[in-house]
Design a protein around this nucleic acid. Sequence first.
DNA 1: AGTGCGGCCTGTCCGC
DNA 2: TGCGGACAGGCCGCAC
Length: 271
Amino acid sequence: MPELPEVETTRRGIAPHLQGNKIVAAIFRERRLRWPIQNNLSEILAKQKIHSVTRRGKYIILKTDNGSLLIHLGMSGSLRLLSTPGSPEKHDHYDLILNTGKLLRYRDPRRFGSLHWTSSDPLSHRLLKNLGPEPLSEQFTGEYLFTKSRNKKLKIKSFIMDSHVVPGVGNIYANEALFLSQIRPGLASGNVSAKRYERLADSIKEVLSVAILKGGTTLRDFVDSGGQPGYFKQSLFVYDRAGKICKTCGVMIKARMQNQRATYYCPNCQH
DNA sequence: AGTGCGGCCTGTCCGC
DNA sequence: TGCGGACAGGCCGCAC
């Protein structure tokens, strides 16, 4: 399940192989992702040089001669760089073949991912323009969260899972960040103090940073193996730990559904 | 306007 | 053992 750290790790892994090289051909086998891939994309991409590989939220942006490719991995998507591609398997939906002989292959069993082309500024694309500030940037602060949450009634976990507030924080990291900042997930976001939001912003930065470090370690060879979930599991304090003992205080972790999402917290550490 | 939920998908796991 | 159903996940777009 690619979260921001895994998307960033993927980006760092593929960037050196793409940057400055040309797309020889793009092959699409399955266009029905979250949105259908536009029909003429092969023609558009052929012979284009890739200038940069960047990230905004969970989108990877390939900037080429004539525009930008916006890649989202959804929840089961992965990008692998192959030197000797075997025949594509069931869920290998598209390939970008490079002039270096290497091939970038997208796999996504659940097809929640997406692929968009834009010929104008990618950050102005409708899917990107309203995203919140990058959580690892200086613009992302406790003060920002505090201000943004005033007069809101929705629960704080839903608040930080909204990509227009914080892009890149999914269910796992929302649970973990709330644990680290000792905040109960069910609190009304509009009632939480500025001080607690300072702590929460720090926790979000911390959990994402540590996960990027671990991803960088564990997924060092993701080019060969494909990014696998589970590498961060040992570091989790609450996610998927219902009935287990809190690593901090020894009390049993609780689980419940909140806004259709599995929610975990320590009833002793979080208030 | 703010909020919550349906729907998109398939692999995995559970219970009958 | 086989099968159906629940569930997981991101997140847009709709409905209230």
